[in-house]
Structures are given as C-alpha cells and as structure tokens.
Design a protein around this nucleic acid. Structure first.
Lengths: 206, 206
DNA sequence: TAGATTGTTAATCGATTAACAATC
DNA sequence: TAGATTGTTAATCGATTAACAATC
C-alpha cells in the first residue's frame, strides 16, 4: 500500500462496497457518483474524490463499472490478504460471532474460541473448539494468529489483555465496553456497542 | 437539549464515560484532562473543550470530580430517558443481544423479539417472547415502541424495512451489512460490523 | 510562593462542498 | 449537437492542536 488513505475515506469505501453488492444483485452494470451519494446522504463530489484514491476510473455520461469498482475497493481494503483470529470469550456474543460465517467472505478466519469456564472448554461451536485461555499464547504461535476478537464481559477485558502482553497477539477487536490499556505494540479497535447506542439515541433525540 | 453537540464530541463523551466507570471502580475521586487524553491518545485540550459542552466544570490543580462528571455526561447522553425496542431477527446475533443485560443500564429496554421462522415463534429468550414479524406493527403500537434492532441477514433487511414503512417504528439500529433505503421519517444507525473490521484491518496493515 | 491544571482564544490542519472545464 | 457525468481545483467549513492567562 503506497499512500495511507484517511480513516473516514476508508469507512465510506466500505459503504460503497455494500452498495455495489446490492447493484450486482440487481444486475446493474454501472453506477453514478450521485446514485451512491443519494443513498448515503452525502455529496456526490465526495464520492468521486474518494474513488480517486483507487485505481478505478469512471466514464463520463455513464458512471463507474460496478464490477471494476467493487474489485478495486476490495483490493484497497485488503480482502485479498486473509487474516486469522481467535475469539476470546465464549459467551453469547462470542458464540454468535463464531457462527457468523460471513466473516470468511471478508478475509477473516476464526480458528478457535477461548474461555476460562471449565464447562465450556472442549465444546465445538460451528466447527471451532473452545480452549482454556491459558492455551492461547501457545496456539497463537502454532497457528500463526495475531488478532483476537475480545468478547469477554467488561470487567475481565483488561485482565485478558494483560495476560496476552507477551504473546504474539498484536491486534484486538474489542467488543467489551472497557477502554483498554495496552502497550505500544498492540493495536485496538473498539466496537463499543453501548457507546454507539448512546450516540445514536442522542443524535435523534429532539 | 438546547444546543446540538457534534457527533464526534458525543462519541468521545461515551468513551470518557467508560473511563469514569473505571475510575469509580478504582475509588478515584478526581480525574484530569490529561489522564483521559493519554488513555485515548488524544489531545488534552480537546478533552477540556468537550467537557465544556456539559454543565460540569473542573478545578484548577485537581481536575474534575469523577462522580459529577459521570452524572453530567449521563444527563447529556440521555441515560435518563429509557427507550423501548424490539429485536428483529432471532438468529445468533439477535439472541446474543437479547441476552445482553447491560442494555438496561444504558436506558435501553428490549421488550420482545421477532422472526419469520415458525420454529422460533413462541420461544422465550431471556424472558422475552419471539413473535412473528407480522405482529410487529400492532405490538409496537400497544407497547409504545419506536426502535428496532435489526439483526436479520443482509438480504432480508430491506424487506423488513419496507414492511415497517407505515408502522410507528422511527429508529433502526441496523446490524445487517445492508445499506437501507428508508423514507424521511425513519432514522438509521448502521453498526456495519464487517465494514468496521475492514477499516480496522486496513488501518493496521503495513 | 511555585506548580499544576483548567478554560478559552487563536492558529493550524484537514475534510467537505461548490464550481466548472473536459469528455463521451 | 446537447446533455450528463467525471475529475479536479478552489472555497468553505469544521475540528484539532497550541498557547497561555487565570486560578487554586
């Protein structure tokens, strides 16, 4: 990847991607910047500018070729490089995510789950085994895993992170509500469902 | 609510709130802007500016009173006005969310689930019954519900939205990957898990 | 007092929107 | 050709950061 594209642009590219999938379902071959802009309630020149970051280009009077644009976004977003991950926390959310087969379509492979509840160890969820957390560092090495999807309850999240400090885990997709303290070598992406709900409900209150 | 606080500020306020919960757990009575800023890797003057939107104020040399600040954020974010919601889609994710009791702490009450699978109708999940989707408009009226949490698979999402067009549902918290087409009278908040994953994995790729 | 921290203004930076020539 | 759409530059807008006086 040559130049870093800003966060916000990447976010919009993921939305354009969803729209393109829809276009393909409807057998549309081309799409215009203003079509996309209208759906997302943004400016059409922004759509064109975002697309200028890719290696695709449009045609005057017809717009962009749907398939081309989709492929181009996928290349930029990294669909092409599959990533392995573990789910830590085999509770409701962890199990739901383990059953979410759609991950694979986006290059994310969940290889196993981890928990500290003896009753859950050994269970198989959607063909993935649940191991005790203590085994994680070892298995991460063996299976070449650098990312965990963290779905333990808030109060345990930091504990897990501390335990993994010297493992080879580098990326944490954090579904717990906790703000994690991590060292320089670990990157966190916060999903923060409750926070998002509050933002949503504030936005549309009076 | 007098003045609208920008989206981004609200987002950060939700993060400050999580941090304050942590402070309370550790029996800390005050917190400084730079403490919060360091945790979130942002500028300390931004923290102070965000807080200036609230009715709280800090003390020179000591910082902010944790309890006060927490209450003030909660007032602004609307914890105080509970909201009713239905979950539409009693699949893995829908059931996981139905079991997530933490919602209640943030003013969100899930009253029931809906699905179109006859095998699921009548099931009880964490004390909430699963009804057939066709009953939704009627029950929404009866129970005074204006929000749905949409957890059906992508291809069905638009269908559900179209069906609810003339119901009293006004807010959709969309967990499906679909970009929804809605009228002026319905507000959508997209959770878009796969999109977020892609953004995350782009951000930290080389 | 000296030092630490807030609250706020001004400066900088980046993102969005508007405008329009080029093109098919 | 006339009309529609892209690609791109310039103008606007908003958000972040820096700086610092006021305060305890």
């Amino acid at each position: 990847m040559e130049k870093k594209i800003p966060d916000k642009v990447i976010h919009r590219l993921t939305l354009y991607h969803s729209i393109l999938l829809e276009c393909i379902k409807n057998s549309e071959e081309t799409v215009t910047s203003s079509f996309i802009a209208n759906l997302l309630k943004i400016d059409d020149s922004q759509v064109r500018k975002d697309i200028a970051n890719l290696y695709s280009s449009g045609k005057c009077r017809v717009g962009y070729a749907v398939e081309d644009l989709k492929t181009s976004i996928e290349k930029t977003l990294g669909f092409t490089k599959p990533k392995n991950a573990f789910i830590v926390g085999a509770g409701n959310l962890g199990m739901a995510l383990a059953k979410y087969d759609n991950f694979a379509n986006y290059g994310l492979k969940v290889l196993a789950l981890f928990d500290n509840d003896p009753l859950k160890i050994g269970n198989i969820i959607n063909q993935r085994e649940v191991f005790h957390v203590s085994k994680l560092p070892e298995l991460a090495k063996e299976l070449n895993v650098e990312m965990i999807i963290l779905t333990v309850p808030g109060p345990y999240a930091q504990e897990v992170v501390d335990f993994l400090k010297n493992s080879q885990i580098k990326y944490i997709w954090n579904f717990s509500p906790a703000v994690l303290k991590v060292g320089e070598d670990i990157e966190v992406w916060n999903e923060n469902l409750m926070g998002n709900f509050l933002q949503f409900s504030y936005k549309f209150s009076n």
